[in-house]
Computed example of a mutant assay.
Amino acid sequence: MENHPNTSSSTMLTQRYDIPPEGVLPVFFLASLSYAMILLCNLILLLTIVLNKKLRQPMYMFLLNMPVNDLLGSSAFFLHLFKSLLSDNGRLWFPACVTQAFLIHIYAAGTVLILTAMAYDRYVAICLPLQYNAVMTQGHVARIVASIWLLCLLLIGVLFFLLLRLPRCRSTVHNIYCDHPSLLALVCVDTTLNHAYGLFTVAVTQLLANSVIIFSYFRILMVSCRSRRADTKVKVVQTCATHLFVFLFLEILGLCTIISYRVKQLPPTLRHFIGSSTLIFPPWLNPIVYGIKTKEIRSIIVHFFRSKITKSCASKLCFSS
């Protein structure tokens, strides 16, 4: 299958993991543990917001989309990873390869836009507190959430439409998972339009996100500096520092991934690790950061587990007596 002209081939071959036979089982166990933690943490955050009426505020409605998006991206990556480790090959059906790439790019764009919406919400809450309820109505929040997903689907949908219209003459994906740059490298005709549109999608999402976030946090910083109340400053710092950390962490990982594609001298193992890190660390970190740092969510989760432990202990005491 190695790069023979074959536009009709429905089977792809992704890059194999450079793992010795004795290391496959430990890697599979570590990957399973990582994916289980991602599932557990994101589902806890998701169910906590969905099942508690106290968390019907706009901030939590935006946050609700984060675990959904993280589960999409991480599942698209880990399910193929498990298959590759168990079968010791990277063979993948072409529609499955395209689906994986599509979900990964939806995840990347969605993360940036969700964080942008959360920054806008914090701007209105801190800079326009008296107008917050009038501005952030349920209808307005629903329109923002719908716009995020529609914009993701539109941008990424067009990106893959432009890709799929081109004939393929290669079948080896030079990456451990399928993404748009790797699939575009399989095409043997002019891809100038595809590259131009790819840059356009990156420019739109990054320009929109960075403009809103820089403006929002600049105004929040100004309001914080003008405030004479120490507790207000502490609250602003605690609220915004977490959000900025998550956003900057994601941007750094994304930048490193883009650079790793351009640096040909980079060892393949390091390039694969950098590319995978964007799909592993944010989905694992986001629910922990927002679950622990958000007081309301933390108190609900702690109360739930305490009540379960108390009931369990009480039932055991009753049974023993």
Results as ranks from 00 to 15, higher is better:
Ser10Leu: 13
Asp18Leu: 13
Asp18Ile: 14
Ile19Met: 10
Glu22Thr: 14
Ser32Lys: 03
Leu33Cys: 14
Leu33Glu: 06
Ser34Gln: 06
Leu46Arg: 03
Ile49Leu: 12
Val50Trp: 07
Val50Asp: 01
Asn52Leu: 11
Asn65Val: 15
Val68Phe: 12
Ser84Cys: 07
Asn89Ser: 12
Val98Trp: 04
Val98Asn: 02
Ala101Ser: 12
Ile104Cys: 12
Ile106Thr: 06
Ile106Glu: 00
Leu115Ala: 06
Leu115Trp: 02
Ala117Asp: 03
Asp121His: 08
Met136Trp: 06
Val141Met: 04
Arg143Phe: 12
Ser147Met: 12
Leu150Thr: 09
Leu154Gly: 09
Leu154Lys: 00
Val158Met: 13
Phe161Asp: 08
Leu164Met: 14
Leu164Lys: 08
Arg165Pro: 01
Pro167Val: 11
Cys169Met: 09
Arg170Glu: 01
Thr172Gly: 04
Val173Pro: 02
Asp179Met: 09
His180Ser: 14
Pro181Arg: 05
Val187Cys: 06
Cys188Gln: 03
Asn194Met: 03
His195Leu: 11
Gly198Pro: 01
Ala203Gln: 07
Ala203Arg: 09
Ile214Arg: 02
Phe215Asn: 12
Arg219Leu: 10
Ser224Asp: 06
Arg226Ile: 11
Ser227Tyr: 05
Ser227Gly: 10
Arg228Met: 11
Ala230Ser: 15
Asp231Ile: 15
Val234Ile: 15
Lys235Val: 13
Val236Ser: 00
Leu244Cys: 07
Glu251Ser: 12
Leu253Glu: 08
Tyr261Pro: 02
Arg262Gly: 10
Lys264Phe: 14
Pro268Glu: 09
Thr269Trp: 04
Phe273His: 07
Leu279Ile: 12
Phe281Arg: 07
Phe281His: 08
Pro282Lys: 11
Trp284Glu: 09
Asn286Trp: 05
Ile288Cys: 07
Gly291Lys: 04
Lys295Glu: 14
Ser299Asp: 11
Ile301Gln: 07
Val302Met: 10
Arg306Thr: 08
Ser307Tyr: 06
Lys308Gly: 09
Ala314Trp: 04
